[in-house]
Design a protein around this nucleic acid. Structure first.
Length: 354
DNA sequence: TAACCGTGGAC
DNA sequence: TGTCCAAGGTT
């Protein structure tokens, strides 16, 4: 083991973050593969703070991969709502069912890599954290830490092979899982993107970027292009008994698998779409805005109070007692907030009485 | 390779 | 208010 790895493990033994999916470092305990896998998938491009509540709810409802595998799609998607990147939830279910079918998780990085939603990072992380395999774990934290310690000047993402070899050179055969988590903790708490706390870093002495005072400029990244703006429209229909007209979005669309309001496509500049049911649709003045990772979206909102017996051409009615705004992805929640400024939606029964 | 795929918090 | 970004994967 290198001196750097030893120094970092010593630091980790004293400063490891306490997280719901972790066991204490150096305890000899190993967390269940199911919990490691679930946490790693949730943590893909997502902050620890955002994941905690979702992780607790998922593990409380579904304590094993077999339990999760048996759940209906819609139930899991509703529980995932708000966490984003919904392909993760679709792959999560596909993976759970494959694992349940084969009788457990593969115990090697290569085996894990075959499963849906498990890429190079996640396969390495599960193999090393849950099974103790020596695997080279490279996430955004590791990229930043290695780029600084070795003063990598090649811009990301082209620097990935170089960074991988640096991480490989430091990863020990003993406690490789703790080492991987230690680098990630270092990146999350000390070697942060902005204002790194070099003064208290266990790697402050060997760090080349700190020696050269260029740590703020590492890693070098290629500029990303500006996000375009798109428009569309959404229909929020509510029946006189309070039921909501919703559709499950196709898996090949944006927000695939999630509940949403029927409306236009957003990708062809189309602001027109047939209403999902006959009725007196009223356009509201306010628009719903939402920022996605690669475009901004503005939606016109049309609302209608629909009579009992209405037969929708798109979507289906969901009883008011079954509906919660938390089942919706955030963009659709924004549409709902705008729609609820109209009494037609906010209080359909009041209209009936009037 | 590069585009696509969400969200909320920090600054 | 705008920008950046987080334990990435898929195509």
């Amino acid at each position: 083991m290198t001196d750097l790895a030893r120094d970092l493990l010593d630091w980790y033994d004293r400063h490891a973050r306490v997280l719901p999916w972790r066991v204490p470092p150096g305890s000899g305990e190993v967390p269940e593969p199911y919990r490691v896998w679930l946490s790693e998938v949730m943590l893909q491009q997502t902050t620890v703070a955002a994941v905690k509540g979702y992780y607790e709810r998922f593990t409380a409802r579904w304590p094993t991969v077999e339990a999760l595998a048996a759940v209906e799609d819609a139930e899991v998607m509703a529980e995932w709502a708000g966490l984003g990147y919904y392909a993760r939830a679709r792959n999560l279910l596909a993976c759970a069912r494959a694992v349940a079918e084969r009788g457990g998780f593969p115990r090697t990085e290569a085996g894990l890599r075959e499963l849906p939603g498990i890429g190079p990072y996640t396969a390495a992380a599960i193999a090393t954290i849950a099974f103790g395999e020596r695997a080279v774990v490279v996430d955004g934290n590791v990229e930043r830490v290695m780029a600084r310690v070795f003063d990598v000047t090649t811009p990301l993402p082209a620097a990935r092979p170089e960074i991988y070899s640096h991480a490989d050179s430091l990863t020990p055969a003993d406690r490789p899982g703790d080492f991987a988590q230690a680098v990630m903790d270092l990146g999350a708490t000390i070697c942060t993107p902005r204002n790194p706390a070099c003064a208290i870093c266990p790697w402050r002495e060997p760090c080349l970027a700190r020696q050269r005072s260029v740590q703020a400029e590492r890693p070098v990244k290629l500029p990303k292009r500006a996000v375009p703006q798109r428009r569309g429209l959404a229909y929020v229909g509510r029946r006189e008994d309070g039921a909501w007209l919703l559709e499950t979005r196709g898996a090949d669309r944006m927000l695939g698998g999630m509940l949403g309001w029927p409306g236009s496509a957003w990708d062809r500049g189309e602001e027109e779409a047939e209403p999902p049911a006959p009725g007196d649709w009223v356009a509201l003045n306010a628009e719903a805005r939402h920022g996605f990772s690669h475009f901004g979206l503005t939606l016109r909102v049309l609302v209608a109070r629909l009579p009992m017996g209405t037969e929708p051409s798109r979507g289906a009615f969901m009883a008011a007692s079954e509906f919660r705004p938390g089942m919706l992805p955030t963009a659709m929640r924004r549409v709902l907030e705008v729609a609820e400024t109209s009494p037609l939606i906010r209080d359909p029964e009041g209209i009936v009485r009037a």
